[in-house]
Design a protein around this nucleic acid. Structure first.
Lengths: 319, 319
DNA sequence: CTGTTAGCGCATTCAC
DNA sequence: GTGAATGCGCTAACAG
């Protein structure tokens, strides 16, 4: 396959000139420019991007770290990221971690090895100290509050939004409120746990550890929760569910088992996933696509910025 | 940042030797080997992958073309691809096309420019003649029957599986059977359309073009279909829905509007998406994750192979 | 077992 | 406006 040198010969110019016209630089005479394009056509020339990468030190590739690509939450985030990537002429390298730290480290290493220009971590597993050691190799952007750290981020105030949701439930007359969460350890989860405790304290409600259900990520996890609840003497009468998928799973289970919503069980979801609309589930809307777009933009910016996005309550029929 | 040359100096060996130990080649004396590793540590050396790529002509990157990354069908396929990619130490470049041909061409160009080693096209838009012109640049793998073409593929017999589904519906007493499809033009869609026509002919049933609903991809499209049906004088009494997501949307609509399933409307989905299990929807299982895995394997193999996978009927409560 | 040398293909500085 | 020369960092014949 022809390279830039061949073109130079064919067009009777130097490689520099070829490079100039290929990259649309000014100051090339019309004749030479045309001669080069002619040579390009004749030879079916194709630029070798890797050579460009090596020479420029940039790849126009952004890494995206997420635990599961087939979960709507991350799907939506990814959608936003992808939209903005296309717009800015970047491509995305997908790194699915399944929450295995080793994979996340591999992603970080890609940054170190210059395989990608920047990294967007949608859900972090590894410690801050680990991420700090990659600071010098390129931009790393997070989807959680990093205002204590030198990394850009786009996030949502999970403490406040959880508080808002709990208060909504409380105002509707619920006192026995439990919640479902994905993993207990994430920083977002910790914020929510704090909001939950503070809410209970403020309203003089008892804390019951069995009102907290974790490992709730997918639709099918809803049934699991309901079965656990069935075994309880005094199950919660309202559930704050941090994923509309799980909320939908719970709602479906209730329908199949003649549990009346919201009378016997109130449900409040999160995300405003399309499924919550279809099923009429009250939810806290998180602007995932917008967040994705913003995450991408931050990944190609030099400055470190922190962007908080708003969450809004969408009332439907399950509370 | 240190490079291989610096290491050579530090360890008092040649760059070749450094390269050898870095790549775990045999035939290097223990002392030199250790000296090199020592230098690596001292200098915090990081390999520049782009240089490797340029030098070897390979990137260990596979492109994945799909219309929407936030659709469960493609999410599952992607999951399979990703699993196998990790296993083989490859990374994935995501190319979301939204069914825009231009994007698909860009993906093909990435192959041409050696940015990726191979390309997996999960759902094709561009013509075969277009793809043929990229034959020489690298492996291209498809998720549709390509036995007429020099491209590897992993696929499902959509004609037969559609026929099986229709027959199942028919045997259950349904004659007024309609179907929902994503887009009319895809090769899979054409196979299904043929199966549908042949089925009607065989059973001497009338063909009604208004029994075919297209643009049915997402959960929320179910409502659209039902609203269309409401306007019909003689709506279908059974629906074959090529996506469990849409089937779930339809089922939910029926529940909300007191339409009794399967008595008033029978529904049969496709994919065996988790949602079909949760909602008890009868469906045709497509082994998407397995297909994804196989697609990946084909993408890194030299030979052209064709792999057909089986589809199986899963009876639940909607037929 | 080890080192020299020649690429890989392109971008870019600098001098003309 | 143009081109020669150098560098990007690594791999791999080839010779020893």
């Amino acid at each position: 396959m022809a390279n830039i040198k061949d073109l130079a010969k064919m067009a009777n110019v130097s490689v520099t000139t070829v490079s100039r016209v290929l990259n649309h630089h000014p100051y090339v005479s019309k004749e030479k420019r045309e001669a080069v394009w002619e040579a390009v056509k004749q030879s079916n020339y194709q630029k070798n991007i890797n050579a460009v990468h090596l020479s420029t030190g940039k790849t126009h590739l952004i890494g995206v770290v997420l635990p599961y690509s087939n979960h709507p939450y991350f799907g939506l985030l990814l959608d936003g990221i992808a939209q903005e990537a296309v717009k800015n002429n970047y491509s995305l390298v997908l790194i699915q971690t399944n929450y295995e730290e080793e994979r996340e480290i591999k992603a970080l290493d890609m940054l170190k090895h210059k395989q990608i220009d920047a990294l967007i971590i949608c859900s972090r597993i590894c410690s801050w100290s680990t991420t700090y050691s990659y600071l010098e190799y390129g931009k790393i952007v997070f989807c959680e509050d990093t205002r204590q750290h030198p990394f850009s981020s786009t996030f949502v105030d999970h403490y406040t939004s959880f508080e808002t949701a709990l208060t909504h439930l409380y105002n509707k007359g619920h006192e026995k409120i439990g919640y479902c969460i994905g993993r207990k350890q994430g920083s977002n989860s910790i914020n929510r746990a704090n909001a939950y405790r503070d809410f209970l304290t403020k309203n003089q409600l008892p804390y019951r550890h069995d009102y907290i259900f974790d490992q709730c990520l997918f639709l099918q996890d809803g049934e699991k929760v309901m079965k656990q609840m069935k075994e309880m003497k005094e199950p919660p009468a309202a559930l704050l569910v941090t994923s509309d998928q799980v909320a939908a799973g719970i709602a479906t289970y209730c329908q199949n088992n003649n549990i009346v919503i919201p009378h016997e069980l109130a449900i409040m979801g999160f995300d405003n996933d399309p499924i919550s609309k279809v099923m009429g589930i009250t939810t806290m809307e998180i602007p995932l696509v917008e967040m994705g777009k913003h995450l991408f933009i931050q990944s190609i910016q030099d400055e470190i910025t922190y962007k908080e996005m708003g969450v809004s309550l969408i009332e439907r029929n399950t509370v």
